[in-house]
C-alpha cells in the first residue's frame, strides 16, 4: 500500500523532510503557470517545470524548466509531478513522468479519454507509482503541501481526512469543517471521471491508519459504485472513526451526464439512493446539504466519546 505521507511529507531523517520537491508539467501554460505560482505561495516546494521546447528557461526567474520529466528528475530527484497539459496530451505527459521514475502523479486535466487514463494507469502499476485523478482538484496536507488547484482559504491543518470526487464541493465542505473547528489532516480529490487513478477505496486505504485521525468525511456523487464499495469496506474492517458522507446528485435525472464524465446514473447503477442506503448500512450518516457535514460529524464524535 502506498504510504502517501511518506511521499508528501517524508520522514524526519530525510534531508527533504516537509519540503518534498514537486515538478509541474505544463508550467508555461496559462493554467499551469497560475497554479504553479499559487502552489509556491502556499509553500509547496516546486523544484522544476517541464515544457517541451522551453528547456533552459526559468519560471518566475527561479524555477528551472526542462524539456522532459527525465531531465527534471535527473536534476532534482523529485518523485512527485503535477500535470496541467491539455487532455489530448495527457497520456504522453504521463508516460514521460512515469518512465522517469515519478511515484506520485497528480492529473488535473478534465476530458481525458478513458482509454488514455487506463493506459497511464497500467504503466503506473508496472512502475509502482500512484496517479491521483484525472479531473481532480489534487491532494494536500493543509498548511504543509498543496499539489493541486484548491484555493487555500477553506483549508486548515487538523485531524479529519476528506475524500472527494468533486473539487468545488471539497472546498465548500472543508470551508464548513474549518469554520466549525475541524481542520484536515489530508484531503484527496479522487476526481470526477469514470476511471480514477486512485479510487475512493484506495484513498481510504491511504488515510485509515493515520495515528491521530479523528474523523473521515466522504464527498461522493452519483455515478459508478465507488461509494458503495467503500461503505462495504468500512463495514468489513470495522472502521470505527467517526465518519460522515455527503452525496451530490439526488435530484439529477437518469442517464444524463451531470458535468463530470463519471456523474451518470444508468438504471439503478450509480444512483444516489443506492449510495445513501449503503452508507446507512455502514452506520454512516449522509448529510443533506454541505453545511450539515460538520454538524453530523460533531454528533458522531460525541457518540464515540
Amino acid at each position: 500500500m502506498t504510504d502517501i505521507f511518506r511521499l508528501l511529507r517524508g520522514n524526519p531523517e530525510d534531508s527533504d523532510y516537509k519540503k518534498k520537491g514537486v515538478i509541474v508539467q505544463g508550467i508555461t501554460g496559462a493554467y499551469g503557470s497560475l497554479h504553479a505560482k499559487n502552489m509556491m505561495s502556499y509553500g509547496t516546494n516546486i523544484v522544476a517545470g517541464v515544457t517541451p521546447g522551453k528547456g533552459g528557461q526559468k519560471f518566475e526567474g527561479k524555477v528551472p524548466i526542462y524539456n522532459t520529466v527525465k531531465e527534471a528528475v535527473d536534476a532534482t530527484d523529485a518523485k512527485i509531478s503535477i500535470v496541467f497539459v491539455p487532455a489530448k496530451f495527457f497520456l504522453d505527459a504521463a508516460k514521460d513522468a512515469l518512465e522517469a521514475g515519478i511515484k506520485l502523479l497528480v492529473a488535473i486535466p478534465e476530458h481525458i479519454p478513458v482509454r488514455d487514463t487506463m493506459e497511464a494507469l497500467e504503466l503506473a502499476t508496472q512502475n509502482g507509482a500512484v496517479i491521483i485523478g484525472p479531473n481532480t482538484p489534487g491532494i494536500m496536507i493543509p498548511e504543509l503541501i498543496k499539489i493541486g488547484i484548491m484555493p487555500p482559504t477553506p483549508f486548515k491543518a487538523g485531524r479529519i481526512a476528506v475524500l472527494s470526487k468533486s473539487g468545488t464541493l471539497l472546498y465548500e465542505i472543508c470551508d464548513a469543517l474549518t469554520s466549525a473547528g475541524f481542520g484536515q489532516s489530508i484531503t484527496i480529490g479522487v476526481g470526477g471521471d469514470p476511471i480514477n487513478g486512485t479510487r475512493m477505496i484506495d484513498a481510504f486505504e491511504m488515510v485509515k491508519d493515520i495515528p491521530d485521525l479523528e474523523g473521515l468525511v466522504i464527498i461522493g456523487e452519483i455515478g459508478g459504485d465507488s461509494e458503495e464499495v467503500l461503505a462495504q469496506r468500512i463495514i468489513d474492517i470495522g472502521f470505527k472513526k467517526p465518519t460522515v458522507a455527503y452525496i451530490a446528485g439526488r435530484a439529477a435525472p437518469k442517464e444524463k451526464r451531470m458535468g463530470h464524465a463519471g456523474a451518470i446514473v444508468m438504471g439503478t447503477y450509480g444512483s444516489a439512493e443506492s449510495k445513501v442506503s449503503m452508507f446507512n448500512r455502514a452506520n454512516i450518516p449522509v448529510a443533506k446539504r454541505p453545511s450539515q457535514v460538520p454538524v453530523l460529524l460533531a454528533g458522531k464524535m460525541q457518540k464515540s466519546d
Partner: peptide, 8 residues
C-alpha cells in the same frame, strides 16, 4: 462553477 457544486 464545478459539477459537484451545481449538482448539490
Amino acid at each position: 462553477n464545478g459539477a459537484g457544486l451545481v449538482m448539490s
